[in-house]
Simulated assay, not measured.
Amino acid sequence: MSNLIFPPYLQEGDRVIILSPSSKIDKSFLRGATKRLKSWGLEVVLAKNAGSANGTYAGSIRQRVKDLQDAMDDEKAKVIFCSRGGYGVVHLMDKLNFTKFKKHPKWLIGFSDITALHNLFQQNGFASLHAPMARHLTVEPEDDFCAQALKDILFGNAINGEEAFNYVCPAHKLNHKGTGAGILRGGNLSVFYGLRGTPYDIPAEGTILFIEDVGERPHAVERMMYNLKLGGILEKLSGLIIGQFTEYEENKSLGKDLYGALADLVKEYDYPICFNFPVGHVTMNVPLINGAQVTLEVGNKEVKLSFNTDKG
């Protein structure tokens, strides 16, 4: 699908619904996110079960489905803000109805386990925002780059300004130089991998794929990447963005570090490949429009990811 629908950009007074579709969350982060979003001039509504707990989850499957469905159906809401990731979104995937959402589309925001919802929303024809969640908006300062970038995207400031909306980061020694254009898709590697072979898998052709993960051992990451390689996914991409892999022990069990092992795995492809992009379970987790047309330029000194956000 090449023409995904962008939900409308925000105006002051628009409604944001905060919900917790997967793991339970510390209520202080709900309060912090509410405060930050209100400071942007938005009306903030907490879903009924946003702060609930059922084992490790934020409520039962039924409660989490109802919160998300109610938010999707809300005619006045413009944003569905996921409070956190953590395992649990997969419970909801086949239980949601997009009939009313398609009449009143809204931005979905989140990352990590929320990758599954990004895939689902793209499958239904809508772009969404892979971006920081409640903890980030609570603990990071007012001038935090990623929070400000999220605000600018939501309000169309980054989109409608004279300068192109793009991110620039330093080059990495393992990068493959070149330029590629396509639709930006991806997110958390293990979540994306878990949807392979389902209706919620993403198409490879014409895709600029970005990946990140947390707490996965190097050989597990390599195994998942071999699935993409042997499944014919990697060879069809238009570009690959390898983000941050964190909270694991770099023991060189693969004979080299993780990035080195991944570089060997993708060395045969002639499209642009970027290592160490600022996306993942880190403070510098830049908001990315999942489903947007982008251009990836990997040069000698820097990498530039540019968004073509023409909704026409």
Rank of each mutant, 00 (worst) to 15 (best):
Y200N: 07
N251M: 13
L195M: 10
Y226Q: 12
R223K: 11
I159V: 15
L129M: 11
L117C: 02
K35W: 04
V294R: 07
P199H: 08
L288C: 06
A77P: 00
G182Y: 00
V191R: 12
T207V: 10
L234R: 04
E75H: 11
Q293F: 00
S2D: 07
A261G: 10
T198V: 08
G178E: 09
N175F: 00
R196C: 11
G161M: 05
P203A: 10
Q11V: 06
F111C: 08
G206T: 09
N300C: 05
D201F: 06
P203I: 05
Y193D: 15
S190A: 13
A116G: 02
N97K: 14
E216A: 12
V214H: 13
F192M: 10
I211M: 13
G239A: 03
S20A: 15
F111N: 13
P170A: 13
K304H: 05
A33Q: 02
G178M: 01
F98G: 08
L42A: 03
N124S: 08
V303Q: 12
N49M: 02
G231F: 00
L174F: 11
Y167P: 01
G197V: 07
G215K: 14
S23N: 09
L228I: 06
S39N: 09
K35P: 10
P287F: 03
D14S: 09
D67C: 02
A263I: 03
A116S: 12
L30E: 03
H172F: 06
A127C: 14
G182N: 04
A134T: 05
P218S: 12
F155S: 10
V298G: 10
V89M: 06
V266T: 12
G85S: 10
D73P: 01
I208Q: 03
A220K: 12
R64N: 06
L96K: 11
L154T: 05
T283C: 02
L195A: 05
G260D: 06
T246R: 15
N49F: 01
T56H: 03
G182W: 00
K76V: 05
P141D: 13
A164M: 06
R84I: 12
L234Q: 04
F126V: 10
A149G: 01
P141V: 02
E43A: 11
V286N: 01
L228W: 13
L209K: 05
G232N: 07
V266C: 12
H172V: 13
S39Y: 11
S20P: 01
D74H: 01
E216V: 09
H172N: 15
V79L: 08
F245V: 08
L42N: 10
N251Q: 09
K229Y: 13
N251V: 10
L184K: 14
L296Q: 03
N308P: 07
P272Q: 01
L117F: 15
K311H: 02
A116M: 07
K48Q: 13
Y57K: 15
A164F: 00
K173P: 00
G13E: 12
F111Q: 06
E216M: 14
Y9V: 14
E222G: 00
E162W: 09
V266W: 02
S22P: 00
Y269G: 08
K102L: 09
G291R: 12
I114W: 04
G88K: 15
A220D: 11
P199W: 09
F121E: 07
K256E: 13
Q148C: 10
P199L: 01
I61A: 10
N124M: 06
A181I: 07
A171R: 14
D74N: 11
L174K: 03
